[in-house]
Design a binder for these strands. Structure first.
Lengths: 344, 344
DNA sequence: TTGTAGGCGTTATCAA
DNA sequence: TTGATAACGCCTACAA
């Protein structure tokens, strides 16, 4: 069923071969395929046909070596196991691909050592640009790359370099959530997370605490260890939700990945949502929606954020102005059945 | 806080620079940093020190051009939006990174055109190898790459080229599920999917149908359109589950991504799980476990599969024997609360 | 409009 | 054990 292998020659066809078969110099072939420089229309057609017939593909290594542009962008992902980075990766991927860039994905695996090695490889590969999906573990390393001339976007808005783009976008969502909870009469809010708080978690906790202070709400940080099992986690939560004085009436889950474990634990502890306690998590998914009761969320369009960032990055690479693309939409609080009036 | 930029020179440091500062020829530097060829121990140390001081990183483009090895492997993902590919990607990524390979991720976005262009870019980049996370949309294109000398692994076990690795591993899980359902007295099983069945779905449906025929069970294919909304889908399901004669007593969801929509629809239609109908889905997640009732699943370690595949691929690239790594574990059926005795 | 030729940073061959 | 040097495939002044 497969056509015969072309001519038996298994050699990669290079520019020279095309030049020979089209009876022109390699310079002309180069002009044709790269679209740069003047070429007679007739020759262009002839060369193009030959190139197509031979399935000629310019060797990217040679191009890079000559032009010192690889048309590759690296994406540093702090932890691929964390599903929040997937829409982000998709956004980068999609835009980059459409604009002719390839994407070298690097998973830092939550490890300094892995990150370091990966970044080194990226510089060896001479990637034209680097997109940071989250904070790098070693900001110094990133600065160094920047100084070496690499274009880097890390979610920090260049217009206001002191503030991160993602955090800035997420904050309104946190605030909206606090406001909604307050309006429903909640006075005691628990922020549930693992004992070590990642960058994103810290920002969220900070935003919530600040807003709640303004609203005169009490916030408490509750740490859990999902590995310890549902019963253990459930007991931990129970201590806050069912205590005699000023019990926590709303639980905010620090990250989407943690939510199922918390829900399982609450089930095990017999804490009913939302009667026993309201529940909100960061990050949305079909499962959060399908869950009974449906889970309220603070969510943001990471795909859109990544697209915007990547567009800007490419514009920068091309020396163009940032373009008319406006900032992506900020995060929102979506209230579903898991949030209701505070008891009492 | 940052150290001063080194010497003001912003030039990328090349092998020549190192050679100069170490007072040797570039040939010697090359020998030292690549570790190939004889070098006097004293010179090696001296050169190494200079290289480190200058933070010399060999230019990968030049290396590739010379050696025609890029140390990059491509991964073709049919659709990054589908979360099942994430653990797979992680598996590839992790092994590749550890073995010194970079990973160029390509998302076909369910589009022939996008896939075609992406594969072309991969050949331009001269990737050393290609990992297929699923079936390519255009197998001919892949064959062509193979003929052009690219190492490709596509889940087809080289030992038995006629059978795919992933399907072969998944089949036992499907069989175990059918057996379990039969043992619980189910006689009528519905396989729920979108109207168009992807490759994986087709294999699953085939495996189920075949096993059920052996077990003397009736199977029906139920197609739904989640975009139509929960009520519509719910009504569609209801027609099978609540009909007078030989109602379907167990629903098997064709893919993990579809499960939340189905669960939502069943809720909307008032179909209780498992009393009204048992429920199983392909693919596992924390949410499936946290859902009430906990969802039974047929699941497989895609991360492990990808790791194994990548290890083999790298061994092949190095001309080594496949290595002692044994096949990854086959899929299993995990029974949870969503499956119970058939009514009646 | 086309061709010639130099060079991008490495590796590898061959002499010294 | 080292150094000079020819490729690798392509782009791009510059010359014709």
């Amino acid at each position: 069923m497969a056509r015969l292998a072309a001519r038996g020659h298994n050699q990669r066809v290079g520019i020279q071969r095309v030049a020979d078969e089209a009876s022109v110099s390699i310079a002309t072939v180069s002009r044709v395929v790269s679209g740069r420089g003047p070429v007679n229309e007739a020759t262009r057609l002839r060369v193009q046909r030959v190139a197509d017939r031979l399935r000629y593909r310019p060797n990217a290594s040679a191009q890079s070596l000559r032009t010192s542009k690889t048309m590759i962008m690296g994406v540093l992902i702090p932890d691929l196991a964390n599903p929040v980075f997937v829409p982000f990766l998709r956004g980068v991927q999609q835009v980059a691909q459409a604009e002719g860039y390839s994407v070298l994905v690097v998973d830092a695996q939550r490890s300094d050592e892995v990150e370091r090695r990966a970044l080194d490889r990226l510089t060896e590969q001479q990637v034209d640009a680097l997109v940071l999906a989250g904070s790098a573990r070693d900001p110094g390393h990133i600065d160094e790359l920047r100084r070496a001339g690499m274009a880097v976007i890390d979610g920090r808005d260049r217009a206001t370099p002191s503030r991160s783009l993602v955090p800035a976008l997420e904050r309104p969502g946190s605030i909206a959530m606090c406001d909604a909870l307050a309006a429903l009469g909640h006075r005691n809010i628990g922020f549930v997370s693992r004992s070590t708080l990642a960058d994103a978690g810290r920002r969220r906790w900070e935003a919530i605490r600040q807003r709640c202070r303004q609203l005169d709400l009490v916030t408490e940080r509750i740490t859990v260890n999902p590995e310890a099992g549902a019963d253990s986690v459930g007991a931990g939560l129970d201590a806050f939700v069912r205590r005699g004085v000023d019990p926590v009436t709303a639980l905010v889950c620090s990250t989407h990945g943690l939510a199922p474990a918390l829900l399982g634990a609450m089930g095990a502890a017999g804490i009913r949502i939302p009667d026993g306690c309201s529940f909100v998590t960061y990050g949305d998914s079909d499962w959060a929606l399908a869950y009974r009761p449906a889970i309220s969320v603070v969510t943001m369009d990471l795909f859109g954020v990544a697209s915007t960032m990547t567009h800007r990055l490419i514009a920068e690479l091309r020396g163009e102005p940032p373009g008319p693309g406006r900032d992506p939409a900020p995060a929102r609080f979506i209230r579903r059945d898991s949030v209701s009036d505070a008891p009492g």
